[in-house]
């Protein structure tokens, strides 16, 4: 509209009497209430892969700032079952970060897995699902889903598989991963307890000659204790984590779900 009146081809707008050049940016103080589409809803997630199982866990608190919005808001979702109740699902997705984006991401991945099932007559493998999730995240590279996703399931050989993501879709398969608010508290604990980092065989040498403790896959009961301990520790030191602990264990029999209490303070 303004361009119609323009007498100067260099200027895309109406002309002015003295100082003709319009300021490129608004003056200081103007439009200070720009809409920010993101918030952080806190919470933490965790996944550990075993020899023939995968354990996924997440707390159930939903915060905004210092307020607790909900004490029961699950972060773990079964993905790609035949029906809405996800009774026969074999893949679990955990999302933490901005809850609305997490929800949208979960719904996207679930519909895609369901479409795959109907088109191919078989459920999606974790490997395929993991690659697809990366693509979904990267498709929104310039307006990302602000969600840290972890995907868990069993691979083609029946071994536990954990795939972890950043908000724009970088991913890798790992033995274990913590995500969200208390990730920096839980991850070092996991490095030590799952991957036996900084654990050495006693009296096996001096300094760099020390022999590392041999890595072995953990048993299911060991992992379950580890998960509870990790979250009890996180709850103690992080205000955005607490209320309830949702755990899903994926085995070849299916997905088992338990809800344990955490501190509510």
């Amino acid at each position: 509209m303004a361009a119609m009146f323009s007498q100067n081809p260099l200027m895309n707008g109406p002309n002015y009497s003295v100082n003709d050049a319009p300021r490129a940016t608004a003056p200081e103080g103007a439009r200070q209430h720009r809409f920010d589409p993101y918030t952080d809803n806190g919470g933490s997630t965790l996944a550990i892969a075993g020899a023939e199982f995968t354990v996924m866990a997440g707390d159930t608190r939903l915060t905004s700032g210092y307020s607790i919005n909900s004490r029961h808001h699950p972060k773990l979702f079964k993905i790609g079952g035949t029906t809405a109740d996800q009774k026969d699902a074999t893949i679990v997705l955990s999302v933490v970060g901005f809850a609305a984006d997490g929800e949208a991401l979960k719904e996207r991945l679930d519909t895609i897995c369901k479409m795959y099932r109907y088109r191919h007559g078989k459920p999606m493998s974790v490997k395929a699902c993991a690659q697809r999730l990366s693509t979904i995240l990267y498709q929104k590279r310039f307006f990302p889903y602000y969600a840290y996703a972890i995907l868990g399931g069993l691979d083609e050989e029946g071994k536990g598989a954990v795939y972890s993501y950043d908000p724009v879709g970088s991913y890798e398969r790992e033995q274990c991963r913590a995500g969200g608010a208390a990730a920096s508290l839980i991850m070092p604990f996991l490095d030590n307890q799952v991957n036996f980092k900084n654990q050495y065989v006693p009296n096996s040498g001096e300094g760099h000659a020390l022999q590392e403790r041999e890595r072995r896959p953990l048993s299911r009961s060991e992992v379950e204790v580890l998960v509870k301990d990790a979250f009890d520790g996180a709850v103690e030191r992080h205000i955005e984590v607490g209320d309830g602990l949702q755990i899903m264990v994926i085995t070849k029999e299916g997905v088992e779900e338990v809800l344990l209490p955490l501190k509510k303070d």
């Binding site: 707008g13 109406p14 002309n15 002015y16 003295v18 100082n19 003709d20 319009p22 300021r23 103007a30």
Partner: peptide
């Protein structure tokens, strides 16, 4: 186009970003 606007020599160029 300049009618009804604050005088630029007094108030500076109109901020068209609005």
């Amino acid at each position: 186009q300049a009618w009804g606007r604050p005088r630029d020599d007094v108030y500076g160029a109109y901020d068209a970003s609005y």
